[in-house]
Nucleic acid binder design. Structure first.
Lengths: 152, 152
DNA sequence: GTACATTTAATGTACATACATATATTTGCA
DNA sequence: TGCAAATATATGTATGTACATTAAATGTAC
């Protein structure tokens, strides 16, 4: 089996935490790579895909640009410009909010929903990727450990 | 304690593996955020910092651009242009390799080494971040689990 | 109710990433 | 030797990220 040391050609780490940190970063990058490969032929970028998925998760309810940012993993990404690109292709629509005209409500269009439906079959789920090697209980434990790390 | 569901305002996940995948991505982004904050006042980007650290790890030995790519976590990043920026600031130097004139040898300069030394005190180590919440044994177990996930 | 601060989104700029292509050099083989 | 294929790096272009600034709407103090 290929360990993290093999992956980045680094034979020594200062300690096991250093190794773990790099392992987490590398595994995240590896997930991204899997997704990008799946999206390759569909002319949609990974950030655009993620925004579409967040919008679908709203089940028809509109969400503001700020709301999108909160739900995005990469907090500093520029939701406004990603929505620009999606709107150009009519995958989402944007409308100034009536109650507070500073805000902009974003919703996924039918075309966007249809595209996601098509992509669902291509993009591997985390369950597909991990359930063979990891029991449900292992996954729970990992989740707990990661939550703890961030609450240091 | 703030769990991953709180962090991205998502109350439900389709299964524990989905939750874990997102947790890994989010934790990696959180590490990046910590590092970026530390580098903020030093006019150096995170990718540039990472390249400098790889070069220091070479202990004086030169490394080719391709060698740099292998050791970088983000495989598709463009090492050539990151080295450009570092060379402009005299933090690294670049020289066509004698044995194979297609290759370019990159080494860290004294100025680059001095900058890294200064940054070492500012950038938190993974050990600092994680050792309080995670035992050595826990960290080993996590490393093993992540290696397994990627070898699916 | 006007003045000033705050909030929300969009925009400008520099750097990075993703991916295709170009250029120079080396290798392999007829 | 001559030349196609392979290799190493650089470059071009579109998109994304990081961070500061701008513009419009709203909230608050007086």
């Amino acid at each position: 089996m290929k360990s993290i040391g093999d992956e980045i050609q680094q034979s020594e780490f200062s300690d096991v935490y250093q190794k773990l940190g790099i392992n987490i970063l590398f595994t995240a990058a590896w997930f991204g790579e899997l997704n990008r490969m799946a999206l390759k032929d569909y002319d949609i970028s990974l950030p655009q895909y993620n925004v579409l998925r967040i919008l679908r998760g709203q089940k028809g309810k509109a969400i503001t640009v700020a709301g999108l940012c909160e739900r995005m993993i990469d907090k500093s990404s520029n939701a406004s410009r990603i929505v620009d690109k999606l709107e150009t292709r009519n995958l989402v629509s944007r409308r100034v909010c009536d109650k507070d005209r500073r805000q902009v409500d974003v919703v996924i269009t039918e075309k966007g929903t249809a595209l996601l439906l098509e992509l669902d079959e291509k993009v591997p789920t985390f369950k597909t990727i991990m359930s063979k090697q990891l029991s449900n209980k292992d996954a729970e434990a990992l989740n707990f450990a990661l939550d703890q790390i961030r609450n240091h």
